[in-house]
């Protein structure tokens, strides 16, 4: 058993590199994943431009406020596709091959989550550039690094959920439906689109339990260069959330029949 455990890291690396190779060969998918966030940023941003004129609105320009929200949205969309690509592997027999190979199952899960994290970081980097061009500003080097950390934590957590769901549901249609059903409410119940102070009281309460809120707040803090206690709080909560989801995903894979 020990002999196999030492292969955990190399197995994860081989599988991660394989997924990366596939993404590299079909880069279009990475860009397609950006289409929807860009629409939100450009069109939704214009539509609600006037919002920033309201009293007590935290930023001068709505795009400045919206950008961290759209970054987190990109992570959610990307993560929900991770499960769909798992189903593709299940359907064409690739996953079955892996499950009968002498590798620890957690390396299959981890390689998938890391791959998703990597793809999303690439997407977010592009998004940050586009947002800067339309006046959202640019975080400093420190901030940029921590944006990547927040994005990675969120993507590990949510793609773990998506993979676990995919493994349970085993069908595309319900998975896509559930993905859509979850992502939008998660965004509405966070400060992605409007400040929390603007929400009715009960929504504020819900948003306190929503990991997406902490993600948005953390990214916003990076943009503002305010890496103080609330920021570290958010990072802590996100770490717990992603570790918990990853544990669930690994357990689902181990139990899979």
């Amino acid at each position: 058993m020990r002999a196999y455990r030492t292969h955990f890291i190399s197995d994860t690396r081989y599988l991660f590199l394989k997924s990366l190779k596939l993404t590299w060969r079909m880069p279009m998918w990475t860009f397609f994943g950006l289409v929807q966030p860009l629409l939100w940023l450009l069109i939704f941003g214009q539509l609600f431009k006037g919002l920033s004129k309201l009293p007590k609105f935290p930023t001068k320009d709505y795009v400045q406020f919206l950008t961290p929200g759209v970054i987190v949205m990109t992570v959610l969309f990307g993560a929900s596709w991770s499960g769909v690509s798992l189903l593709r592997d299940l359907r064409n027999g690739v996953m079955e091959r892996l499950l009968v190979a002498p590798i620890v199952r957690s390396s299959i899960v981890l390689s998938r989550l890391l791959h998703n994290g990597f793809t999303v970081i690439v997407q977010v980097s592009l998004l940050v550039v586009v947002a800067a061009l339309i006046g959202a500003g640019f975080p400093n080097a420190h901030g940029l690094f921590f944006v990547c950390i927040v994005v990675l934590l969120l993507s590990l957590g949510f793609s773990a959920i998506s993979n676990a769901l995919a493994m349970r549901l085993k069908q595309e249609e319900p998975l896509v439906v559930m993905g859509n059903m979850l992502t939008l409410p998660l965004l509405f119940f966070s400060s992605a689109l409007v400040p929390v102070d603007f929400m009715p009281h009960w929504m504020q309460l819900v948003s306190r339990m929503n990991p997406v809120s902490y993600g948005v707040e953390a990214v916003r803090a990076c943009y503002e260069g305010q890496l103080f206690q609330p920021f570290w709080m958010s990072i802590g909560i996100l770490s717990i959330f992603s570790l918990f989801s990853m544990a669930v995903a690994v357990m689902t894979f181990q139990k899979v029949e």
């Binding site: 394989k18 190779k21 596939l22 060969r25 079909m26 359907r91 064409n92 027999g93 690739v94 079955e96 091959r97 009968v100």
Partner: peptide
């Protein structure tokens, strides 16, 4: 060695 009902190869490789 195991040959499943589906081809277990990645078509994009």
């Amino acid at each position: 060695g195991y040959i499943g009902q589906q081809i277990g190869l990645d078509p994009a490789l």
